[in-house]
Amino acid sequence: MTTDRDLHDHLIGQQGSRADLNTPVLILDIDALDRNIAAMAGLAAHHGVALRPHAKTHKSVEIARRQQAAGAVGLCCAKIGEAEVLASGGVTGILITSPVAAPGAVNRLAALAGRTEGLMAVVDHPGVAARIDAALGEAAATLEVVIDIDPGSGRTGVASADAAVALAKVIAASSNLEYRGVQFYCGSQQHIERYADRRAAIVDRTAYLQSVIAALTDAGFAPVLVTGSGTGTHRIDLDLGIFTELQAGSYVFMDKQYCDCDLTGDGDQPPFEVALSVDARVVSANHSGLVTIDAGYKSLSTDGGVAVVQRGAPETAAFAFMGDEHAALIAPGIGTQLSPGDPVSLTVPHCDPTVNLYDSYHVVADDTLVDIWSVSARGCAR
């Protein structure tokens, strides 16, 4: 199989070599990436809040290392498989943010706890906590755990303050688990486009979080760690002052979904730059109002709307999927403006699942390919 390295290693360092890449290809602007990393790290530090960015966005050891070098206390992972990959790459302070419940996964978690510095995991069920405790005993390991609180979505997390207290008691009675605090992630609120609407929703949910924290505190389980938030709500959460650390992830890349949101409420430019794109090429231009490009369902996620033109074609051109391998760009006269082989860059609809479609980031600076980084934890969903 021809790899990205086979295709493109010879282009590294050649001025303007982005134009010679085989497409479709995942592009990462290293300068924009580093500015985004520094901006979020600086904001968290200014507010005295820790930053543990979510690696489910980038699934990359290289990017995780850059985030930790900029001050992140660790990284979040959605699944045990992601955590195993990052830990193997030397990343420390990993928090697994989805419950690890299956027996095989629990055994892997116990083994990882024995060899990884600062590993933490969430729990939301007493039976699972007991299962993890038993596996840790067999592995002669211990693990810090965080109680996941359901913010109202019904996806994961304890469903009430009473349930949180009951789970805290189970953890306290265990031999190998150490209670650390709570997790509260309002996923469905992250992409509310109007700042005022998003803030109102988060204020309401934060009041509920405070009631759970109060119940835990009254029972003798005051949380040291209150972790959560995201790119869409980080400014609001910092202002409300309840979280001790942020889990924001997509800020490193910015996608169309977040570009459509007013993240700050002050009318300024977005606080983060678009660092990620998919480069494609025109493969057919036989109609005046339509050209076909070589990036379809296999190249772009479909859960967040459609891609938008970043450059190489009219920014007003409409994007429409045309199948697994192709999409159309539709605009008056576009078929006479562009020819087969012409490059087009796209801002992706939703960065996390789009990244998971690729083996590598093609890292560029000023349109020169400077490196190729593995999407280290691609496909590690179990």
Rank of each mutant, 00 (worst) to 15 (best):
A214I: 00
F272H: 10
T354I: 10
D124L: 05
E84H: 08
I330N: 01
M322G: 14
V308Q: 07
E178N: 13
G230M: 00
A110G: 01
H234E: 04
A130Y: 03
A135E: 03
V348E: 06
P349F: 05
G114W: 02
L177C: 07
F272Y: 14
L290T: 15
V252A: 04
L28M: 13
V363C: 11
L33E: 02
T316N: 03
Q15W: 03
S339E: 10
I63Q: 04
A64T: 06
G312A: 13
S301T: 05
L290C: 14
P103Q: 13
Q183C: 06
C351H: 09
N107G: 11
G232Q: 12
G228T: 01
S98E: 02
Y358S: 00
A173V: 06
H234W: 09
V274E: 04
V355T: 11
A207F: 01
Y258W: 03
A139W: 03
G89Y: 06
G114A: 08
K79N: 02
M40I: 06
A110E: 02
H10A: 15
Y195P: 02
A196V: 15
H234L: 00
G335M: 10
A307W: 05
D324G: 14
G335L: 11
A141P: 11
A163M: 11
P223W: 01
V355Y: 04
V100M: 05
P24M: 08
A320W: 00
L246Q: 06
N22L: 11
G312H: 10
V283Q: 07
G16R: 07
I27L: 15
